[in-house]
Nucleic acid binder design. Sequence first.
DNA 1: CGGAACATGTAACCTGTTACATGATTTC
DNA 2: GAAATCATGTAACAGGTTACATGTTCCG
Lengths: 179, 179
Amino acid sequence: MSLPHAILTALLEKPSSGLELTRRFDKSIGYFWSATHQQIYRELGKLERDGAIRALPREQATRGQKKEYEVLPAGRAELARWTAASQDPKPLRDTLLLRLRAAAVVGMDGIEADLRRHLTLHRRQLAEYEEIEKRDFPPGKDAVEDRLRHVVLRAGIDLETFWTQWLEQTLEELGAPGA
Amino acid sequence: MSLPHAILTALLEKPSSGLELTRRFDKSIGYFWSATHQQIYRELGKLERDGAIRALPREQATRGQKKEYEVLPAGRAELARWTAASQDPKPLRDTLLLRLRAAAVVGMDGIEADLRRHLTLHRRQLAEYEEIEKRDFPPGKDAVEDRLRHVVLRAGIDLETFWTQWLEQTLEELGAPGA
DNA sequence: CGGAACATGTAACCTGTTACATGATTTC
DNA sequence: GAAATCATGTAACAGGTTACATGTTCCG
């Protein structure tokens, strides 16, 4: 039950159409909550039926015609409720770790190359986040909203840092130093 | 498509019944791939139909009667194939980060308490992992299989370390130092 | 006017979650 | 023999993924 809340957050930041939302989910929001356009349209329909959002009035909107949404008071209230509600952290679920555990049983053939590939990808992602940090959070900005967005980005940076370091150590430990 | 492979790995480590698997998923395997007993029984049925595993022969097994499974060659081959195959890392999907982003829009009311609660939970999990490391991986054990299982546990430890540190920094940054 | 890019959707499927059902074995 | 626990399952639903369908606008 998080996608609707992700969408409400995005729409509060800026009213948008389905495709605009999709693009924003491919960028900033998608860094911690990804979604495809099919999910987004499906959810926009539900949110509209539930009275959480409404389509900005324009001439008859048919298929293929842009449709912008904005959040209604009920939607904002629901988002505030959800944000404050206590939630348990989800247990980790990671394929790469599972594959390493499997490799202890069926052998490591072929997995090293993919570890190196992941290292490259995580390094790239880390560099991207650091660019964003430099651009969007220069020292000094410290309104509460900025600090909140900054700690979220920090989580992304620290996580990517963890993965790159862990992959480097793992490759070394398994006798195959990374690129 | 990871649950069947998690089950195959577990069964190769030790042939088991559905309930035994469930218990193991609540412990070691569940640290990086969780599953409920309903998922496990459903998947065991599928794997058996596909010829990847078979029930160890015992007298007629009816409902309520224990049923042990072992992996067949086809299942082992499929696991080896899957382990070696290249897979992309899944994008991050974290509710707590999403809630912080939402808090930048609807306000932080009530979220601080949950951040502190998460900090407690992550500290506890970290302590548990460190216990396991001390018990199962004393210095000196270095067969390849042990090293593989150790790096997986290391990932768990480092991830929990990341979360505790990030939560401490975040609570401080938001003007509310952690417990 | 034809093709690319924009824009919204449908349908089928797979995985995971929640609630419930049922039988077998042990223990008091 | 009743209750607790062990053990295997069914059903309904929610959320995410993949493939496909359809209409609109812009540009050469």
